[in-house]
Design a protein around this nucleic acid. Structure first.
Lengths: 246, 246
DNA sequence: CCGCTCCTTTGATCTGCATCAACACCACGC
DNA sequence: GCGTGGTGTTGATGCAGATCAAAGGAGCGG
């Protein structure tokens, strides 16, 4: 939407009141989660702020469902525990993303949510959220949100089951690129906020394969990686890797 | 194979009116989709009935979103088209399941929906569905439904990315078993309403591997398969295959 | 009934990725 | 500074499952 990181620190719109009005995120908060109307109705939700350090749990699968969380700063991952004690990452959340939608209307969390680095999260308690949902517009908005997340996960499931390692990694990079762009940053230069191991877990690959594939892309000058710093040099080439080779 | 097939043909509860009252499914209709209250409010939704033959499309990805569908009889699959023209099955729907939840609030369908055999589906048009959602109870119910579907797909995505062929097929069989049981049929003797190819596509395996794995299970007397007829002889053994071997 | 096509099974071979292994790098505390 | 543990890269090897191949069965239209 915007290519200027500065916008993130613009002052909030006048309509905002209470804690939200002070929030540096301003109207960028919950871009996909809540329309402006919400923040007028419940200006104080952000009083329930949570700070997490790297590796800390926001909640665990099986925990009582307390409400919907909005990521204010930092990054998290949501993990689905598997029968054998392993656990698989089903999504990464960044600023403006919501957590807990998959547990709405149930009383326990379906996944773990773990901070990838220092991060800050706002809780919208269940009772306030439900009040919000009495307003038809907001209710529709939340359903849209869930539907979008549902088809995102469907797409992810489809990809993991069928694509090759190169296709998966290329798709992943393009996805990250898009998400940074949505938040007003460069789509060709950004930091991967997760480790190779986590990327591998998410894509159903080992970290060695992820590393090798990144090297492969780098060898062809399509990207430049230094640790977690990513520079995409040839977006089109990556896109071409997305489709199955003939 | 039918535990209590008769239940399916029980008369509908007195509360039901209109077209729904005549419906053979009775209270089994939409067990997971709509509470009884709904059928009192909109007794006529079933007038929008659709009949499909094997292989026919109920809708296609990109079609305008017309409403939520309920499966009255028969089986369908929902497929996610992939960039390379292939398409991947993301779910199977049987009697009482809903279709279209992943497109709620958006104006186009996210997936294809295709009949696996002759089947009958009821359309709940969008405007009626939205009226329904004005009632808080129903609104909550629909969110629950979406949340459940969301975590089902998350679990599926997690499984496909990590489990071995044996684990995947075992999990799949247990899943089918459970779904038949939910509908009042035997959990140990049922019909696989999809082909090996479709199972493979769903699980991210080739049909040869699916076939081999079924033979493998049959060799150890855990199951007996004749074509699509499935008899589970040792549920516990299958369950043990679900976990990663040590 | 035949002929056709699609589905299924089973065998043989191939290959992409996992696995095992060694080492470099960086960040951390001491 | 030096160790130590987590993280990343790269190489060598092995295996699960894909691919190729062949043949029997089931369903269906004519």
């Amino acid at each position: 939407m915007v290519n200027r990181g500065t916008q993130v620190h613009d002052t909030a719109p006048v309509a905002l009141q209470g804690a939200c009005a002070q929030c540096a995120l301003g109207k960028l908060c919950f871009p996909h989660v809540l329309p402006a109307a919400f923040r007028n109705l419940f200006p104080l939700v952000q009083e329930q702020r949570v700070r997490l350090g790297r590796g800390e749990f926001l909640f665990r699968a099986g925990d009582p469902f307390k409400g919907i969380y909005a990521v204010k700063a930092g990054f998290l991952k949501t993990c689905m525990p598997l029968p054998d004690g392993q656990s698989k990452i089903v999504g990464f959340q960044a600023m403006g993303d919501a957590l807990g939608l998959d547990s709405l209307g149930r009383n326990v969390q379906a996944t773990d949510a773990i901070a990838l680095n220092g991060c800050e999260v706002c809780l919208i308690p269940l009772d306030k959220f439900e009040k919000l949902l009495e307003h038809p517009t907001e209710s529709v908005h939340v359903r849209q949100l869930m539907a979008r997340e549902l088809s995102r996960v469907e797409r992810q499931a489809a990809a993991v089951g069928t694509l090759s390692a190169k296709q998966l990694v290329a798709t992943f990079l393009l996805d990250m690129s898009e998400r940074w762009e949505e938040r007003g940053y460069s789509k060709s230069e950004f930091v991967l906020f997760m480790s190779r191991k986590e990327i591998g877990n998410y894509l159903g690959l080992t970290f060695e394969t992820v590393s090798r594939t990144l090297s492969y892309f780098q060898d062809r000058k399509w990207i430049t990686v230094h640790g977690k710093n990513m520079l995409i040099g040839d977006l089109a080439a990556l896109q071409s890797q997305t489709a199955r080779a003939t």
